[in-house]
Design a protein around this nucleic acid. Structure first.
Length: 837
RNA sequence: GCCGGGGUGGCGAAACUGGUUAGACGCGAGGGACUUAAAAUCCCUUGGGCGAAAGCCCAUCUGGGUUCGACUCCCAGCCCCGGCACCA
């Protein structure tokens, strides 16, 4: 503390509140004392407070990041004040396409860029006063980390969950490179504007679809934000239905056949086409089939007359980026010349190919029921295909014509469906599936919308996939002892005309002997997806300083004690990908015997989004708010508290700087009150009552992340504390300093020290709250007459209904409305009295 | 289109499971004190209408409903934000 120079005459001036001084003092003090270093080994009540680690962009942290981190920090500090040993780590998700694109743009190598960005982030995070354990951080681009990312890949590979297949990527023919979906704008490359195409490349996939049922089922028991769970459920997209097999007629045998009814028997050797449908009940209305243009059976079934048209259509379909391909457009398609047999009606129906059917869902083929599916209806209209009604809604008949697809199921019954006429939709689904099953033409199946996770990136800035391709042995995993496969520092990390991964241009790097047979072989030159880096980082944090940190991704003992994560706070933009992948990897590692739990995050809360002028902050809009200026001007404590006072944490809101002065005044008043506090005499009864009500309110609000109302409650208390410019008592202010400490940690420490404490405030515990004291010995009951509030009465806590009624009659304001003979009296104890006359 | 979340003063927002005269807390605005003056600080007022006042009436997106009592529950509709979306 620096004493102000005081004029000889007056009393000594109390020290002024200068945030910069206080904050730098406590930053140093915390670092020197190791205040924020978690006692990972010796903890009996551990609490793991995780926040989503940032991608260290060149622009630095923006207020959105700070808002999220502050919310987590308050929760973490509160847990610590509750006596938990808290671990609040931070790290850097620095691999990936964002970093690489930025590096390309400024022409600096990412290996040079990232450390600079990380240093800047560290400076900002420190300035914000987070209770971060800086001795345990993670940088996904460091070989000591990605060695284990590669290990995770190999765990999946060894369990048969990593496989290679050809898959479409967005391809810019001008830049000769692969583009992520977000780099495609309206079908064109965001950089050069060239029309983007699809290109099929051999890529690595993780078999997450194997886990779809578990990923979905476990959601019910997780304490997560509802919005996040809903998003995951939608993403996984379970649907029940049937896989129905249609016999494809042999064009030679059946050529020229005029017969409409043909054998429905599927005999060995006949070609058949399985389709997935959620509406097996409508099979009698299936008037044609559609195959995705990429369907492998297309070549086999297409007739000679139609072949050139089908091939042309397929080429045209591939000349579309993945986004446009899947967006709703005018229906297009081509007849294949082939026919199939509807197993229910025995009728011959045409087989088409159209791009509204997607290869990567179900079986890549559908039975079209234009009468009861909007898309099929549209297609049938466009190409003059027959539309049959097989479902009748209330008031409709079997012959009521269809002017649009009738898709309602409520109260509807089957029609034109032979023996199933009159069945409800649900009955029809069951009965028809069973009937087709008897004929071996169908089986009940559950399908998921979730796709396998493509982890290949034909890029530079990521961990090399630890596989060696050998002509003799196939894909051979890099032996654990040879990990990490170091990402080489190559100057030409830019994608170029060769059209392959940058690493594929470095023969000296990829030419290696096969680990299995020793013959010349070739490293995988794709790197892995950033979501793999971030899919397991929470497992690494507690163990980064473990004795076996170089021998294992996570220490068994430590992991047992600290995981799963007690509380995870992050943005809902990661509701599906990051959170789903993390859950999946955890499940796999659990199944492999590495983890005792299968869900990584016991509790997850999605914070709201901070927007600016009604729009998401983005560089292109130029509305990004940089926190540094605010921290410099107002102090980190004020800025943190202000961000939390903006609105409900889980809702976010529009950032404005109007109002920040109010929060600063609030801290100023606390400061002044502590300076002025007197230890003599007794604390004021009324003030103490308010204090205890405030302790309760703040203690209830923080765990619910209702920070804005917690701050309001403290402000209210400060108003009471200072009312009439009274001198506060020490006992009235000391607990307040503890209450405010999660929000404004630096100034709270400073005041705590001024109050004579020699140990840190965050180890001081949470003030106890006295319910009886908070309640006082009287209560105020609102009095209504005929539902209109007419006044209120103050009665002793012990007052019962007759006593309250008596008091109400005696009250002048109420008495004039009081009915002579009440018909009904409703008394809600402690709250309200309503007299109906 | 489907699934979430919302709609309350000039503004950000409160209101426990329907129950203390809706709008706490803060910003902004108006007035006052202190000051030569300003800043800072402190005090008062601040949803709308009528009224000299006491007071009365109207107000939580709109329209219905349930209830002694509705921002809160139900039905119908409008608008905003977020996610998903040719997934059969």
């Amino acid at each position: 503390m620096t004493a102000q120079t005081t004029p000889a005459s007056g009393p000594p001036e109390p020290p002024a509140y200068i945030p910069a001084t206080v904050e730098s003092k406590w930053r140093e003090r915390w670092a020197a004392r190791g205040t924020n270093v978690a006692s990972i080994e010796g903890s009996d009540r551990p609490f793991y407070a995780l926040m989503m680690f940032p991608y260290p962009s060149a622009e630095g942290l923006h207020v959105g990041n700070l808002f999220a981190f502050t919310g987590n920090d308050i929760f973490a500090r509160f847990q610590r004040l509750q006596g938990r040993q808290v671990f609040e780590p931070i790290g850097f998700d620095a691999f990936g396409i964002h970093s690489e694109n930025y590096a390309l743009k400024v022409g600096t190598h990412p290996m040079e860029l990232i450390p600079r960005n990380v240093a800047n982030f560290t400076r900002q995070l420190t300035a914000a006063g987070f209770m971060v354990d800086w001795t345990r951080t993670v940088d996904t681009t460091h070989p000591s980390y990605y060695r284990w990312t590669q290990w995770v890949f190999l765990q999946l590979f060894k369990r048969g969950l990593a496989y290679r297949k050809k898959a479409a990527v967005n391809w810019c023919p001008s830049c000769m490179t692969v583009l992520a979906n977000e780099q495609v704008e309206g079908g064109a490359c965001e950089r050069c504007g060239t029309q983007v195409e699809q290109r099929a490349l051999e890529q690595w996939f993780f078999h997450i679809t194997d886990y779809a049922a578990r990923l979905l089922g476990n959601l019910d028991s997780l304490d997560w934000s509802n919005t996040t769970k809903t998003a995951q459920r939608t993403w996984i997209g379970r649907s029940e239905g049937a896989e129905i097999r249609f016999r494809i007629l042999n064009p030679l045998e059946d050529a020229g056949s005029a017969a409409v009814h043909v054998s429905t028997q599927i005999t060995p050797g006949t070609r058949e086409l399985p389709v997935f449908t959620t509406r097996p009940d409508t099979i009698f209305g299936a008037t044609y089939l559609v195959l995705a243009p990429e369907h492998p059976l297309l070549d086999d079934i297409v007739s000679e007359e139609q072949r050139s048209a089908v091939v042309a259509y397929r080429v045209q379909a591939s000349k579309q980026d993945l986004i446009t391909r899947k967006s709703v457009r005018e229906k297009t398609g081509v007849f294949t010349g082939a026919y199939a047999v509807n197993p229910a009606t025995g009728e011959m129906i045409p087989v088409w190919t159209a791009d509204y059917v997607l290869m990567d869902y179900g079986t890549g083929a559908i039975m079209a029921v234009p009468g009861h599916d909007e898309r099929d209806f549209e297609f049938a209209q466009a190409f003059g295909l027959p539309v049959e009604r097989v479902v009748a809604g209330p008031g409709q008949k079997a012959k009521t014509p269809l002017t649009e697809a009738y898709t309602e199921t409520e109260g509807a019954t089957l029609v034109n469906s032979e023996k199933f006429n009159g069945y409800s939709i649900d009955e029809g689904k069951k009965a028809i599936t069973a009937w087709l099953e008897e004929q071996h033409a169908a089986k009940a199946v559950t399908n998921y919308r979730l796709h396998d996770w493509c982890i290949s990136r034909q890029r530079y800035w990521g961990p090399p996939i630890p596989i060696i391709h050998c002509d003799a042995c196939g894909a051979v995993p890099v032996p654990d002892a040879d990990l990490p496969v170091i990402l080489p520092n190559i100057p030409d990390f830019k994608p170029d005309d060769s059209g392959v991964s940058p690493l594929a241009r470095h023969e000296e790097w990829y030419r290696v002997p096969c680990p299995a047979c020793g013959k010349p072989a070739r490293r995988e030159t794709d790197v892995s997806d950033t979501f793999l880096d971030s899919g397991w980082y929470f497992l690494r944090y507690p163990s980064v300083r473990a004795a076996d940190a170089d021998a294992a991704p996570f220490n068994a003992e430590i992991t047992k004690r600290w995981l799963p994560v007690d509380s995870y706070i992050g943005g809902n933009e990661h509701a599906v990908l990051h959170l789903l992948y993390s859950r999946f990897l955890t499940m796999v590692l659990h199944d492999a015997g590495h983890l005792a739990f299968e869900e990584p995050f016991t509790k997850f809360r999605a914070h709201g989004l901070i927007i600016r002028d009604g729009a998401k902050m983005s560089k292109s809009k130029g509305n990004v708010v940089i926190p540094d200026v605010y921290i410099n001007e107002w102090g980190a404590d004020t800025f943190r508290t202000y961000l939390m006072f903006l609105g409900p944490f889980e809702e976010g809101g529009d950032f404005r700087d109007a109002g920040i002065s109010g929060v600063r005044r609030f801290l100023d008043r606390i400061w002044a009150s502590v300076q002025a506090a007197s230890a003599t005499g007794a604390p004021h009864e009324e003030v103490m009552r308010k204090l205890h009500a405030t302790i309760r309110k703040v203690g209830e609000d923080i765990p619910r992340l209702q920070y804005n109302t917690a701050i309001a409650a403290m402000m209210e208390y400060v108003n009471v504390l200072r009312r009439g410019e009274r001198t506060p008592h020490r006992a009235e202010v000391e607990p307040l300093v503890q209450l405010v400490s999660p929000f404004a940690p630096h100034v709270a420490e400073e005041l705590w020290e001024m109050l004579g404490h020699t140990t840190g405030i965050f180890d001081s515990g949470w003030p106890a709250f006295d319910a009886a004291l908070a309640a006082g010995d009287t209560m105020t009951i609102a009095v209504q007459v005929n539902g209109k509030t007419r006044g209120s009465v103050v009665v002793p806590q012990s007052a019962d209904e007759p006593a309250v009624v008596a008091a109400a009659k005696a009250d002048a304001a109420v008495a004039k409305f009081f009915p002579a003979s009440p018909r009904k009296v409703i008394y809600v104890p402690g709250r309200i009295l309503n007299v109906v006359g």
